[in-house]
Design a protein around this nucleic acid. Sequence first.
DNA 1: ATATTGTGTGTAACCGGTTACACATTTTAA
DNA 2: TTAAAATGTGTAACCGGTTACACACAATAT
Lengths: 327, 327
Amino acid sequence: MANIRDVAKEAGVSVASVSRYLNSKGYISEDTKLKIKRAIEKLEYIPNQIARSLTTKQTNFIGLIVPDITNPFFPELARAVEDIALSYGYTVVLCNSDEKSEKEIHYIDTLKQKYVAGFIVTTNQLRASHYEDLKVPLVALDRMIHESIPTISSNNVEGALMGTNYLLEKGCQNIVFMRGPKGLGPADDRLTGFLQAVEGKEVQTHIIESPFHFGESEKIARQFLTDIKGVDGIFASTDVSAAGALKAAHSLGISVPNELQIMGFDGISLGGMLTPGLTTIAQDIYKMGALATRILIKIIEEIEIDERVIQVPVELVERGTTRSEQR
Amino acid sequence: MANIRDVAKEAGVSVASVSRYLNSKGYISEDTKLKIKRAIEKLEYIPNQIARSLTTKQTNFIGLIVPDITNPFFPELARAVEDIALSYGYTVVLCNSDEKSEKEIHYIDTLKQKYVAGFIVTTNQLRASHYEDLKVPLVALDRMIHESIPTISSNNVEGALMGTNYLLEKGCQNIVFMRGPKGLGPADDRLTGFLQAVEGKEVQTHIIESPFHFGESEKIARQFLTDIKGVDGIFASTDVSAAGALKAAHSLGISVPNELQIMGFDGISLGGMLTPGLTTIAQDIYKMGALATRILIKIIEEIEIDERVIQVPVELVERGTTRSEQR
DNA sequence: ATATTGTGTGTAACCGGTTACACATTTTAA
DNA sequence: TTAAAATGTGTAACCGGTTACACACAATAT
């Protein structure tokens, strides 16, 4: 493997010139450029990134911190991040935080040690100050950490508003809103949207907390579907929860969407695999991931960014868990 | 940030001693050890991995190459890999190959450039020789690349045999086997198992090729469910395909499991989310990932490994797409 | 008593880049 | 015409580790 000194020798110039050529930094004459170019081709020289990192204190790695890659929302996000990262020459490091602050801290520390270029964080177990003190480029995805940190999220309030209104239009009178864990940004926002939508309306509502986990959601849904009489609509703040609710309805012999209509939130592909297909407020997950990655790379490469907080619009996807005709 | 020379000075020893201490290599007296230990603690010294990599030509990164993280089989695998890697101090780099050899080569080359410690490969677009020439620790997961490369896979033949026999027991007389892409190891093995099981039996069988993709599988299933009369069983060589088939059956008004029984293969959690729940041949996905990672790390750390090819047993999971009672 | 082996430590080169600084030459400005 | 600015290039130190080699001394073998 040729190194920069071999190239310099072959081209008959100094290593500094080769380095300048490689990084398009400082002055080099056309003549020298050509000589270096030829030498590089001849020796099939590829710069050693590790050596480079030692002085620049930066690698081409991007840390992607997710709570759990097993939750179907995140692979779709990861896919987008990976695609864009690759196209800019970056590589993504996968980190499952399990929503545990120790794991999150551990990853951030070790990766910072290894000079990662930046982080995309979809979890926020840590106090905002911890992230601010980091001095490493960082963008928040899905969940807002702090105003000072660029954030990409969906318009959750708007989405929940839209979804609720749709259920109301479809005739729901007694709606359970399965809210996500308290204190979690998007979950709280979705609840806000729901409450705004039902405010002053003649509907019965029940707010029930449920984690973003299929099995748990199913259990919780089965519980409230037996306890509360006359529930004719469920708005779950996650498709996974909605899937759990649908399963629960099926196992209780409740017909969807005739007796009970269900609305999800997320737009993961799971929704289309269920029967009936899940009506949902779809986020543009790929776009969110792609956008976050582009912004992170801009920050890393010190390119001016225009907006710090971006809301990606959501879209209502009508499938089979809601009625096609109004009653 | 303190470096090794600071520590050496603080401890009143040479950098070589500190390095020996850190790597438990060569001779050091107890006295010196203690002095170094104190200095490290006092200065809160953390060795710089990048600098280390420059000479050792190795990092703590493990490259995980998957066809597509969006396919629900792979996040479950990735999760296992990540968990085990973390516990041994390694970090995983996610690579989506999209089943494209260029992308696979690109990742392998760039990561090798960056001195990754090794690869876990769940795809094999390249000729085996390419992997052998790599001179980087590598284990194959799910798909066998070559006998010389350690491989973790499920007992696919056995599983398909088991699944088919089960369908036969449940009374299926006219079975469609949705085989995966040709030339793909596990897909071929599963077909082999199926053929072995029906060999000489009084059953009608149809082998239909289908990619491991929900939408495609659904379309293909809808097609053959209308074209072929009297199909009463489907064995899909992937849960995702089975999910597609189930959806197709539903949309055609075919009752599952009364008129049509469906068996999947993989054991991804999606199976349990569907209604009815998918009966499937479950691989121990987590175990496969964990095992592959442990073996890779052994190879990296030059610890003797006992077996080069490991088959993880599969298990029949009975859910709702097959009948509970025999007819 | 001497040769051999084992233990313990330090110096300095090396891994492969980047870059501050010095210096030379050319171009532009005053 | 001369000072200042722009352009072009090379030397050598530096990033922060690892390690070959030399050397000193103690323990053991002959």
